[in-house]
Every structure is written in C-alpha cells, then in structure tokens.
C-alpha cells in the first residue's frame, strides 16, 4: 500500500508513517549534501539564520547532474546519508522533519529522529533518471558556487520513497535484513 504525503509536513503526518511504508511525496523539498551542511552548521555556530525555513522541512541528500536546456533538473538520486550524520541532530532539534537519502544513520541521528518526531526516508539509489521525472521545478536557494552541492528547492510530484526510520524507533534496514538473514555467515 502506498501512502501520500504533502511536504513540508507536521508531527501529525509523521505519526502516520511506519518503517517499511512506501510513500509518494508531493510538494517542496530542499537538496543539501556535504558542503551545504558544513556551511549551515557554520552559520548556526555564528548565530546567523539558515537561508531557508527549517521547521517541517524535508532535506534530500542529493547533488543532481546538470540540467539539459529546457529541463528543470538533471538526473537526481540520493547520496549516502551517513556523511551528514555529524550535522543532522542539530538540524532535527531546530525542526527539520524529514530526510531523504540512502544508507545507515548513526545512533545519535536515530535518537534525534525519535526525540523530534521526524522521519528518515530512502529513495532508490541510482534511479536518478526516474527521479528527475518527478521533479517539476528547481530553484537555487543558497550557495550557487557549490555547483551540484548548492541548496535547491525542488517541486516534486509523487516522488517515491520508503520509510526507514520512523518516530517510534522502527528501522527498516535492521528489520528487513533480520527477516532475510541466513545463519552461518
């Protein structure tokens, strides 16, 4: 069964999502990866505001390939989320509600997810031509100089993701693997 979710989203919407749920996202999401996260934390350390409203926001860990003429965006799929772990709890504590990426999160991030009633989604890594088809518009919000690592606001329609970590402590990577693991290895 596929659920639909409008982004940005609220605590109430997060409560309805469980690890393993397939979800189609429609609304706006922000791209940010390594370099943008580093700059965000530097801003916060200096007591300055982030260049976007973070409450309820969804950050997609992605750096798209360049857009061909006439297209809103190039190929876009998730990058490995774990590299952002060192920055993530602080953003969650400020109200970040959703993250899209691929791969394991640290115990500190998982605790911050539960504490802040947030959700970690996985998109299919490498399905980036498909991903581009679900993006209807893209605008650079900050740090154009970072090229593929700039923060972009994307308009997405029925963007396919699956819930990995939910507000209840569910973890699809652990549960899915346990279900199919065979002993002796």
């Amino acid at each position: 069964m596929e659920k639909k979710l409008v982004t940005p989203f609220t605590d109430e919407a997060a409560a309805d999502l469980r690890a393993g749920d397939k979800v189609l996202l429609t609304g706006t999401i922000l791209t940010a990866r390594d370099a943008a996260h580093k700059r965000m934390i530097e801003l916060l350390d200096r007591g300055e505001p982030l260049p976007f409203e973070i409450v309820g926001q969804v950050i997609y860990y992605a750096g798209p390939s360049p857009a061909k003429p006439g297209r809103p965006i190039g190929s876009i799929g998730p990058t490995t989320s774990g590299r952002m772990d060192v920055y993530t709890p602080r953003l969650l504590d400020l109200g970040l509600k959703g993250m899209i990426g691929k791969g394991y999160r640290s115990p500190a991030v998982k605790e911050a997810i539960v504490r802040n009633r947030a959700v970690y989604f996985a998109a299919v890594g490498g399905a980036a031509a498909l991903g581009a088809q679900r993006v209807t518009d893209a605008r650079v919000v900050a740090w154009d100089d970072l090229g593929p690592e700039a923060i972009r606001e994307l308009d997405v329609v029925d963007f396919p993701v699956i819930v990995v970590n939910d507000i209840y402590g569910g973890d699809l990577y652990e549960e899915g693997r346990r279900q199919y693991e065979r002993g002796g290895s």
Binding site: A62, S75, A128, L130
Partner: peptide, 19 residues
C-alpha cells in the same frame, strides 16, 4: 524502478545515476 530508470536514461540520453 531500476529497469524503468534504465529505459528513461537510454531514451532521454541522461545519466542513469547523478553520480
């Protein structure tokens, strides 16, 4: 999704993966 992705990438001459 990966099969569909490969079809789109080939048809549109765009990268299979952004990386």
């Amino acid at each position: 999704q990966l099969i569909q992705n490969a079809e789109i990438a080939r048809r549109e001459a765009m990268p299979l993966c952004q990386d």
